[in-house]
Write a protein that binds this DNA or RNA. Structure first.
Lengths: 342, 342
DNA sequence: ATTGATATTGCAATCGATTGCAAAAAGTCA
DNA sequence: TGACTTTTTGCAATCGATTGCAATATCAAT
């Protein structure tokens, strides 16, 4: 009934051989070093005793842990669920297990979590938390810990990353709106300290410029619905002729939507709205959100795969994978209202 | 630059004492065994060398891992994000780290994951995956592994659990609808193999009976939007006079909503709809969903707390925490249309 | 100064698996 | 049969921290 933890030594005793022989017999790569009949007896005995190798012990010897730390800024944010799903999927297929930490946005707290993970001797780290110039990344590099950035990247290219093409994403959004006749387009940017905030803002401005347009930009204080609402308030208070808004992220877009409703503005009739991410359920909000889709799950998968390779190869090669986003047109964007033309 | 892993032995050499003395000086509970000045020197040296204790080694000796396995049936399902958030929050505060596994619904695969976790010597397990009679639970009990069930429970009370009061939840939903004048109410049940599916179904029937009503029930094949849509199709094809539908879960409700729209039925004007869970964003769908709110984050917190206590105390006491749900009335429910009265 | 108590420190085993090296066993060939 | 491979197995160290026990140092009291 109670934990009859079987060790290699017990198998050895039961089989009348030395523990080292058992170890070899149980390792596929070393089994050839053991006489066939002995190996069979050992394997049989191991099964009979329901042996589970103790990875703690093995890993202490081998200097690894088969553990990967995953740092998220906010588990509750729905975009991270699919990323985490992709990560978990690949990691477990590769023999690793993910330790997730909901580490927030504060560098100090993140480092605290990483130190914890370090003492657990994680083999690598996947960061979804980084800012443009991140203290944490330097911290990890210093300690020689393999790191991959996912979703957000760094300004300096110190480590590998998997992100979406933010520039293209914004181009898709702006081109779509311009194609619908919009000219006065505003942007609710994410925190400019994050790559997604800064690069999407840049992308927005570049895409607008390409059409000889300039748009108002308002930076939100965080990637939350509330921050989006707040930014939208400011935006609408300052400018009266905006016909479309591009948000740096769906959550921000929802916040914008809240303000539109609250102000009696209809979406898309009065103001068109484009989000970013296409996170779960964006097709079912009202109106269904036109947004730039990012394959988050795939993003997680690639990040995990790259990290596993990085660990196995040991080579510190830096690679940046940039995924192509895709515009999903739904109900929150429409032709520019004629009245607004005046 | 590269990983200068400091060990206790290095500190010992640098300080001119024995490793065991270092170990004691660095352990708050044993520091009193070491002369004050020596302890200070050791601590200083440890900081200078940027010492990080190797938990692998300590835990091998101590027979633990400070790791907790968390099994989810589907990371992508938005209800699990807050649960996981609550778990992570408490666990890290208690010195544990969560290993999450997206283990699906198949018992065989789940056991596979648990064996993996077992070989990593996790100190305990939090299961969000269980069915009414779960093979996995027996498996864990047999191995003496502390387990807590969260969100779903077992029919047999073999281990502690934290769940919502499903019976009350359905009563809230049904009473609300009856209060609005509805009489012909149907239920889209979750898989009856899960406690949430079965108990909510029972709760629905009991609540209906309390009003001398009987409602049609249709079991969905899973907790997904598609399964909800499928169930709704069947339901609406079989019965024509339903004025309200109670879904066992928000995702199912969204599926029902899809079918209503597709059939040209308006919600709530033609048919009222109640969900369950109040998962993120349910306030922003169209129409905003009336639903039974469950404090998922709190649920995760409590589960983690109970598991930590269980591990520390070692007592196999079984406790069942049942959280009170709360009805959140939004736009998907309305007074029964008068025409339907005929 | 001697005894006894107490405070510090060191020694060595331990947790469980892995592996280089050497010993033993088995097989090959002249 | 002896010399030489090759196969199979055992020994013992190792990973890094913890801890019971023993040894030494310190101090007080007589």
């Amino acid at each position: 009934m109670n934990r009859p933890i079987t060790t290699i030594k017990q198998i050895a005793d039961a089989t009348g051989v030395h523990p080292s022989t058992v170890s070899r017999a149980l390792d596929p790569k070393k089994r050839h070093l053991v006489a066939d009949d002995v190996a069979k007896r050992i394997v049989a005995q191991a099964e009979a005793l329901d042996y589970q190798p103790n990875r703690l012990a093995a890993n202490l010897r081998l200097g690894r842990s088969d553990l990967i730390g995953v740092l998220l800024p906010d588990i509750a944010n729905p975009v991270f669920a699919p990323i985490l799903g992709g990560i978990a999927e690949v990691l477990s297929a590769q023999g690793y297990a993910p330790i997730v930490a909901d580490a927030g946005n504060a560098s100090s707290q993140q480092i605290c979590f990483v130190e914890r993970l370090l003492s657990q001797r994680v083999d690598g780290l996947i960061l979804a938390t980084v800012s443009q110039d991140d203290e944490l990344v330097g911290f990890c590099i210093q300690r020689g810990l393999p790191v991959i950035l996912v979703n957000r990247s760094e300004a300096r290219d110190r480590v590998s990353s998997v992100v979406s093409d933010d520039d293209m994403g914004m181009r898709l959004a702006v081109d779509h709106l311009v194609g619908l006749g919009h000219r006065r387009i505003a942007h609710v940017a994410g925190p400019l300290s994050t790559s997604t905030g800064a690069l999407r803002r840049d992308g927005f401005e570049r895409a607008m410029l390409h059409h000889d347009l300039r748009g108002v930009v308002r930076e939100a204080t965080g990637y939350t619905r509330e921050a989006g609402a707040q930014a939208a308030q400011h935006l609408l208070a300052a400018t009266h002729d905006v016909t479309a808004i591009v948000a740096a992220n769906d959550l921000l877009a929802l916040g914008v939507l809240d303000v539109l409703k609250q102000r009696g503005l209809r979406c898309p009739e009065d103001i068109s709205l484009v989000g970013h991410n296409d996170m779960p359920l964006m097709d079912v909000v009202s109106p269904p959100l036109t947004t730039v889709r990012i394959e988050h799950r795939e993003m997680g998968r690639i990040a995990a795969k790259m990290l596993a390779e990085r660990i196995k190869s040991g080579s510190p090669e830096i690679r940046h994978v940039v995924l192509r986003p895709e515009l999903v047109v739904r109900g929150s964007t429409a032709f520019r209202a004629v009245e607004a033309d005046a």
